[in-house]
Amino acid sequence: MTDLAVEVRREGADQADQEDALRSLDGWLRADETLAGRLGTRITATTPAPADHMGTGFDVLELALGSSLSTAALVVSVLQWQLSRRRAPAVVLSRGDVRVELSAEAARDEAALRRVLAVLEPDGEGARDGDGSAS
Results as ranks from 00 to 15, higher is better:
1 M>P: 08
1 M>F: 09
4 L>T: 05
5 A>E: 11
5 A>Q: 13
5 A>R: 11
7 E>A: 06
8 V>C: 03
8 V>Q: 02
9 R>A: 09
10 R>F: 08
11 E>C: 14
12 G>W: 06
12 G>C: 08
12 G>A: 13
13 A>I: 00
14 D>F: 12
14 D>S: 13
16 A>Q: 04
16 A>H: 03
17 D>S: 15
18 Q>E: 14
19 E>I: 15
19 E>F: 14
20 D>H: 15
21 A>E: 09
21 A>S: 15
21 A>G: 10
22 L>V: 05
22 L>R: 05
23 R>A: 13
24 S>H: 14
25 L>N: 04
26 D>M: 09
28 W>H: 15
29 L>F: 02
29 L>D: 01
29 L>S: 03
29 L>P: 02
30 R>F: 07
31 A>M: 12
33 E>S: 15
34 T>F: 11
34 T>N: 13
34 T>D: 14
35 L>W: 03
35 L>Y: 06
35 L>P: 01
36 A>V: 08
38 R>A: 12
38 R>N: 10
39 L>K: 01
39 L>T: 05
40 G>I: 08
41 T>A: 07
42 R>P: 06
45 A>R: 11
46 T>R: 15
47 T>V: 13
48 P>G: 12
49 A>W: 03
50 P>F: 11
51 A>M: 11
52 D>Q: 01
55 G>H: 08
56 T>M: 11
56 T>C: 10
57 G>M: 06
58 F>C: 14
59 D>A: 08
61 L>V: 13
62 E>N: 00
62 E>V: 02
63 L>F: 00
63 L>T: 07
63 L>Y: 01
64 A>N: 11
64 A>C: 12
64 A>F: 09
64 A>H: 10
65 L>K: 08
65 L>W: 02
68 S>V: 10
68 S>N: 13
70 S>Y: 02
78 V>Q: 01
81 W>L: 04
81 W>Q: 05
81 W>M: 00
83 L>V: 00
87 R>E: 07
87 R>N: 07
88 A>M: 04
88 A>L: 02
89 P>Q: 02
91 V>E: 05
91 V>P: 00
92 V>G: 03
94 S>F: 02
95 R>L: 03
96 G>T: 00
96 G>K: 00
97 D>K: 15
97 D>G: 15
98 V>R: 09
98 V>C: 08
99 R>C: 10
102 L>F: 09
102 L>E: 06
102 L>G: 00
103 S>I: 01
104 A>V: 05
104 A>T: 00
104 A>P: 10
105 E>F: 12
106 A>Q: 12
108 R>W: 08
109 D>R: 04
110 E>G: 14
112 A>C: 02
114 R>H: 03
116 V>Y: 00
116 V>M: 07
116 V>E: 04
118 A>I: 11
118 A>Q: 13
119 V>M: 09
119 V>E: 06
120 L>N: 01
121 E>T: 12
121 E>D: 13
124 G>E: 08
124 G>T: 07
125 E>M: 01
125 E>D: 05
130 G>N: 02
131 D>L: 09
133 S>P: 05
133 S>R: 13
134 A>K: 12
